[in-house]
Design a protein around this nucleic acid. Structure first.
Lengths: 218, 218
DNA sequence: AGCGAAGTTGAACAGCTGTTTGATCCGCGC
DNA sequence: GCGCGGATCAAACAGCTGTTCAACTTCGCT
């Protein structure tokens, strides 16, 4: 997936070095401690840059959060859309439920892999989704076009189901995905006394798709 | 607001009136706007009490949050434990998966009903679970005894499944439950163009249990 | 070399935060 | 009536917040 010599994951385009430092430090701290618990001073200290850098490069702390959210969301949705597109190609435009669910679940689970740089990005996204500012919340409810691609595909693949039933089940599936936060995974580890291994993302993907597909096509 | 004579839901035991005012106002504001976005001044203004009331009656803002969380969690878990107990009685100590899942899901869904005073309490709990303080997070990972009752019952009801598989599926089910936040339900309504009605909690319960049971016993 | 824009810096700003304090009020038992 | 403990009050506290500003440096281009 990654190549040696590739530019920093955070910013493919060439930009000011400190801007990227701020971006990455902020994403990391937001993901670990939450937006409200991280101050601009925390970010600039972590990035080892001047305090004013955040406002100079991003305008405001809120704008910084939103820019991270926007970029990561676009990246994640792009991967999902590509997988859905490939599934369409393989099945003449009408892929089965299992492949649609896989396209929805595989990208975030890949990001969750321990060796992946994007593990922290996924945690950021999950956190931003529930703790984000009003701007982020509006962005989430406003842009349903991405999600609609999946709901439409699921409706087409489930001719026996009423549409609203499909929406509900998609809602449940999204809940399964968003449950993969550090805190919840920790609790799962405590409960299972360490027998669950979320690091094996391939096994986890199979597990999740099995569960969701069974719920969808019961 | 409430019928005369009925004791306040928030505090069955007799306590100082302003303490209850603070408790209820704080729960409401926390549920609607998040812990960090609500100041002590917001709470005392909403409750129409003096600013110092929070520290006088609860010690600190964090302690207030934790007390609300503790009480609501205890109430919710009590309902769940009672339903599991009744399912045990009905089935000689070995209830089927569907009844265990119902015991887990029905109480929070009942709280979600629009006419229910506890609708706001459920939103508070879901929010506190993901945005809460370190104390709340430790309380969640530390006290697995409540959840263990359900995982043990599910293991007994699923003899063909490896234990860790049961833990994972329980994890997914909890994700389905926690997905029922205002923001996520709003997005669902936008996506479905208003055809989903979360107010019909009985239908929602059936839907969720159907989905979860199919995933569990596939 | 020299100009101008872009970037960086330290310092300061006003505002809001949770918490504390000491005074005052209220109701109840003696 | 008196006193006492709990409850309420206005006021102030110190600390942290995001943001701004003007001075300074760095860099690219002619």
């Amino acid at each position: 997936m990654e190549e040696a010599g590739a530019p920093d994951v955070a910013a493919p385009e060439v930009e000011a070095a400190t801007k990227n430092l701020v971006f990455n430090a902020a994403e990391r701290l937001f993901a670990l401690h939450g937006f409200q618990n991280v101050s601009v001073r925390d970010i600039t200290a972590e990035a080892q840059v001047n305090l004013a850098s955040v406002n100079y490069h991003f305008g405001s702390k809120d704008a910084l959060l939103f820019e991270i959210f926007r970029r990561r969301t676009a990246e994640l949705n792009r991967e999902r859309a590509r997988m859905l597109h490939e599934a369409n190609d393989r099945h003449g435009g009408a892929p089965p439920v299992r492949e649609i669910l896989t396209a929805l679940m595989a990208p975030p689970l890949r990001w969750l892999a321990p060796a992946n740089d994007r593990r922290i990005s996924l945690q950021f996204l999950i956190r931003a989704r529930s703790e984000g500012t009003e701007e982020i919340r509006q962005s989430l409810s406003g842009d349903v076009s991405h999600l609609r691609r999946f709901s439409d595909a699921l409706i087409a693949a489930s001719p026996a189901l009423p549409r609203e039933e499909v929406y509900w089940r998609l809602h449940f599936v999204l809940g399964m995905i968003h449950q993969n936060r550090f805190a919840e995974l920790d609790r799962l580890n405590v409960l299972s006394e360490g027998t669950t291994h979320e690091d094996d993302v391939d096994a986890l993907l199979t597990r999740m798709v099995d569960f969701a597909e069974a719920g969808f096509t019961r």
